[in-house]
């Protein structure tokens, strides 16, 4: 597609057409995950009743975090994964993000998140072997990030 045509299209697309590229939109397929108030409920809504092994997943973040409005969090794992989900227990709702991986995807994500108060960040990795792995980190937040 040439660029001019593309730009024109994208202007109209803002009004009418939702993004068609998305592989899996978990907000549509698992709506309960995003309204769950606790990490436990959110995991249950996303994956059902699961048992997680607490190894193989590393979650890194600075603690104490100086600015709760933008805490850089890094999730890393060598596990061959299908999905990766990130939760925390400091905000009104627990879910932060759910990643879907293509074949041969690398679990190495960094993102900045908001946290209202001191809390715990939990990452769940759904392996292609059907098992679940988790990693977590406690973070002290000096100044909350949800107050605006």
């Amino acid at each position: 597609m040439d660029r001019r045509k593309f730009l024109n299209l994208s202007m109209f697309a803002m009004v009418a057409v939702p993004a068609s590229l998305s592989a899996i939109d978990f907000r549509a397929t698992k709506p309960d995950t995003w309204t769950a108030k606790t990490v436990k409920d959110a995991i249950k809504a996303q994956y059902g009743d699961i048992k997680t092994e607490e190894n193989g997943v590393s979650v890194k973040a600075p603690s104490p975090a100086a600015n709760g409005g933008a805490i850089p969090v890094t999730i890393k794992s060598d596990i061959s994964a299908k999905t990766v989900a990130l939760f925390q227990d400091a905000n009104p709702e627990a879910a932060v993000a759910v990643f879907a991986l293509a074949e041969g995807g690398i679990v190495d994500y960094t993102l900045k998140i908001k946290m209202k108060v001191t809390g715990k960040i939990t990452a769940i990795v759904e392996g292609t072997d059907g098992k679940f792995y988790s990693g977590s980190i406690d973070i002290e937040v000096a100044k909350g990030g949800c107050e605006g």
């Binding site: 899996i24 879910a95 690398i106 960094t110 998140i113």
Partner: peptide, 17 residues
Amino acid sequence: DASTSQFWSKNPQFKFK
């Protein structure tokens, strides 16, 4: 491919490989 919530920071920055 990420489904995200409101708890990403303002002007979100992210990295992936």
